[in-house]
Structure formats: C-alpha cells, structure tokens
Simulated scan of single mutants.
Amino acid sequence: MRRFATLDVFTERRLAGNPLAVVLDAEGLDAAAMQAIAREFNLSETVFVLPPAEARHRAHLRIFTPARELPFAGHPTVGTAVLLALQDPALGDARAFGLEEAVGVVPCVVETLPDGAGGRARFKLPALPEYLGPGPEPEAVAALVGLAPGDIGHARHRPSRHGVGPRFTCVPVASVERLDAARPAAAPEAGDGLYLYAPDPERMGRSWQVRMFAPRLGVPEDPATGSAAAAFAGVLMQFEALGDGVHDVAIRQGLAMGRPSEIALQLTVEAGALRSVEIGGAAVLVSEGTLRA
C-alpha cells in the first residue's frame, strides 16, 4: 500500500487549475510501474516521491505524463513542494528545501495555510531557458491550430522554440479572442509542446493568457504548465525590451478549459542577460488515499 494525494495546482480553489497526483513512499517502483500508475491516474503529470540522494535535500522526484517521463515540470514541483510541507506541520508554516529532479536540484520556498488545506510555493530554475531556434512560419502554424496566418504574431513576437528540459514551440497570437478560437494540435517538432500566447487585456503590467497542447505526451490541452512558463522567460528575453532589474510576469492558463490557473513568473536581468528565473503559485489539497501497487 502506498499513500497518494491529489492537488489542484496554480489555483487557490479546488476544481480549478491543474490537477496533480503525488505518490508518496514510491521506493521499489521501477519506471514501468510508475508509467502504468501515471496512465491509471490519467492526469497531465503524476509525481513519485523517493528518498533524496543527498540528505540535505527534501526528496527526489520522478515525473510522468500518461505517455513518458519528464526531466522537469513546474506544476508537479509546486504541488509536491506544498504537499511535502503539509506533511511536516511541526516545522512551521514556512520553509525552504531542495527537490532533486532529473534536470537538477530545484530550490523551493513554501508557505502553507494554517488549516492544512494548501499553500504557495516558489522555485528557482536550476537552468536557464535555452533558445532552440525559430519556430514554423505563420502560415504553417496557423493551419495546425485552425487560425488565419494574420492571427499569428504580436508586435515583435514571432514563433520560436525554447526549453528548460521539456521543449516548446512558442507561438504568439494577435488577441485572446483568436487564442480562444485555436484548436488543440501537436507541435511540428515531435518532442515539443505547442504553447500559444497573447497579451492579457484584463490585467495590468506584463500579463499574458496562454494555452498549451501536447497530445504526443497524452495531454491534449494542459490547464497550467510551469515548464512552458519557464521556456516563456526565454521568449520574453528574445522579443521584449527587458532592461536590467526584476520583472514580474502574470500568466493565466486553462480559461478555455474552464479550469483557470495563475502562474507567477519572475525574471532577473543583469547587464542585459537573463540571470535567474523563478516560478510560483498556489496549490490546494483535494484528496488523500492509498494505492495498491
């Protein structure tokens, strides 16, 4: 018997944001068993918590979609960090620890709610987003998602590819109306998620609405994608005039699915170069149980 919990991540209320399953006590499970369990949960990601390789870290995580293992993902990191903090109430309502993932050690800061129902977590990327080259031509990507070529592009933004572990084809869309009209599709590059974004007219500052499609990973559309938000930091560095300093970016996702989520992205720029990226959000506990595996 293995304990598990489900959480809704990048939201402060249940039945919104991105659902996550976390299997505690995952020792003894091999990759094939983890993949089978992830298919059974059939959520965008399932996390398996293992003892850390180094005692100074909180845990070692393995992350699976219904189709394959990921080296890193944002909503599993936020949700698992909150859950692990809730498991240790005697340590107080705020703490910091490292989570070991395939991409590296991810430093997390967590604040839990007094009622034990959830909390907020923020983590620093262990690696900066990598530019992987230009994206497809507007005509090609428009045909994929059922839009017109004129719907693709915003100001200086053009399709591009970026990644931090998982890779994404990032596509600017002219308006949130056209973003909502897009149909889910696979990215032209076989290993990429397809990340569409448009300026958010309802928010002040650097605010965006986004959608992410990854049918090859078993995720037709994702309500919230932290790893894509990490890649989006590279997009902003490429196309926005970001001066030195700290830049806070608000991202809303999942609106077209009826599962609204909010992701906080923070970029630190020094001497014209991206120095660090942090991602944060809330998570709420939905259920707890035991798994026969």
Rank of each mutant, 00 (worst) to 15 (best):
E139M: 05
E139S: 13
A140S: 13
V141I: 13
V141G: 02
V141Q: 10
V141Y: 03
A142G: 03
A142C: 11
A142D: 03
A143S: 14
A143P: 12
L144R: 15
V145C: 10
V145D: 04
V145S: 04
G146Y: 10
L147H: 04
L147R: 03
L147S: 05
L147T: 09
A148I: 04
A148S: 14
A148M: 12
P149Y: 07
P149C: 09
P149A: 08
G150A: 11
G150Y: 04
D151L: 07
D151T: 08
I152K: 00
I152N: 01
G153V: 10
G153I: 03
H154K: 14
H154P: 01
H154Q: 12
A155E: 14
A155I: 08
A155L: 11
A155H: 11
A155S: 14
R156Y: 09
R156T: 15
R156F: 11
R156M: 13
R156C: 13
H157I: 12
R158G: 05
P159S: 05
P159A: 09
P159I: 10
S160E: 12
S160M: 10
S160H: 06
S160W: 06
S160I: 00
R161E: 05
R161G: 06
H162M: 07
H162F: 15
H162I: 06
H162N: 09
H162G: 02
H162S: 02
G163V: 06
G163T: 09
G163S: 03
G163M: 02
V164I: 12
V164C: 10
G165L: 00
G165T: 00
G165I: 05
P166F: 02
R167V: 10
R167K: 08
R167P: 00
R167A: 08
F168D: 00
F168Q: 11
F168N: 01
F168H: 10
F168C: 01
F168L: 07
T169D: 11
T169K: 07
T169P: 03
C170W: 09
C170H: 10
V171D: 01
V171R: 00
V171N: 02
P172T: 01
P172Y: 08
P172D: 06
V173F: 01
A174I: 10
A174Y: 02
A174E: 14
A174Q: 13
S175G: 07
S175Y: 10
S175F: 08
S175P: 01
V176I: 14
V176D: 08
V176Y: 04
E177R: 14
E177C: 03
E177D: 14
E177V: 13
E177F: 06
L179I: 05
L179W: 02
L179Y: 00
D180G: 12
D180H: 15
D180M: 15
A181I: 00
A181C: 11
A182H: 07
A182N: 06
A182I: 02
A182Q: 01
A182F: 00
R183G: 10
R183W: 07
R183C: 13
R183Q: 15
P184Y: 09
P184F: 07
P184T: 02
P184L: 05
P184Q: 13
A185N: 08
A185R: 10
